[in-house]
Design a protein around this nucleic acid. Structure first.
Length: 226
DNA sequence: GCATTAACCACAG
DNA sequence: CTGTGGTTAATGC
């Protein structure tokens, strides 16, 4: 395998910043970088995986094929690790990852990753903290999805995109209406109608994929009450 | 009952 | 891929 100079990487994860030069060499000797275009599958549910994936740049979605169709578990923005639960918890991928925009990704051999976890506590600590935060986020997301009505779930996900992904009140939706439906557990028709009615009420303005949040506090209210 | 919510279907840009 | 209209089932008042 061609080795990569991880020491020179300017997009190191918080965890990797704790690695020594020799540990960075272990990493560099056991990883490969790849570029994915919008729509490319990075890894697929039910396939065997022996890699941890580090998303250096870009945006991806994680999705599970459920009994009632596709469920988008969450979006992930660089920089972050993908596939920690699925690669550490099982040999088979429990979900798929698909690029939503041009993304660069490092595939890290699971054995090298485990070795780093074993030998460098500061590295391991950062990974753990990240995992715990993730778990909390997932708990909250789960409650919102189960207890909110569709209108509230849509409002919540628009807020999520604005706050967490783009840090802006104005952005281009990275997902189709159908995918938004898959994310909040509703049909594409309902997403269309509700986006339009949010626009009619002046909460947002929408033109194709371009969206602007006009009344954030009202959107937050809708997100909480449904 | 009657209204509301939201899914499913069909059809048209 | 989206938007719209009609229909229908479930739930609440």
């Amino acid at each position: 395998m061609r080795s990569i100079n991880c020491s020179a990487c300017i997009l190191k994860s918080t965890a990797v910043k704790n690695l020594t030069v020799s540990e960075l060499n272990i990493l560099g000797n056991n990883c490969a970088e790849a570029v994915f275009k919008k729509g490319d599958i990075i890894f697929k549910q039910n396939a065997l995986s022996s890699n941890i994936i580090y998303l250096r740049t870009g945006l991806i979605k994680l999705a599970i094929e459920g009994p009632q169709g596709t469920q988008i578990i969450r979006l992930k923005k660089a920089p972050c690790y993908l596939g920690l639960p699925t690669t550490m918890g099982d040999k088979i991928n429990q979900y798929s990852a698909v690029a939503l925009e041009l993304s660069t990704v490092c595939f890290i051999d699971i054995h090298a990753f485990k070795e780093l976890l074993r030998i460098n506590p500061d590295f391991t600590y950062e990974i753990l903290i990240r995992m715990y935060k993730n778990e909390l986020e997932q708990f909250h997301r789960c409650v919102k999805l189960v207890q909110n009505q569709v209108y509230g779930r849509l409002a919540g996900s628009l807020l999520y995109l604005a706050e967490e992904i783009y840090a802006s009140q104005e952005f281009n939706l990275p997902l189709s209406r159908s995918e938004i439906g898959d994310m909040i557990g509703t049909s594409r028709e309902t997403v269309s109608r509700m986006i339009n009615s949010l626009a009619q009420e002046g909460v947002i303005s929408i033109s194709g994929k371009h969206i602007k949040i006009l009344n954030k506090s009202l959107l937050e209210k809708i997100s909480q009450k449904g």
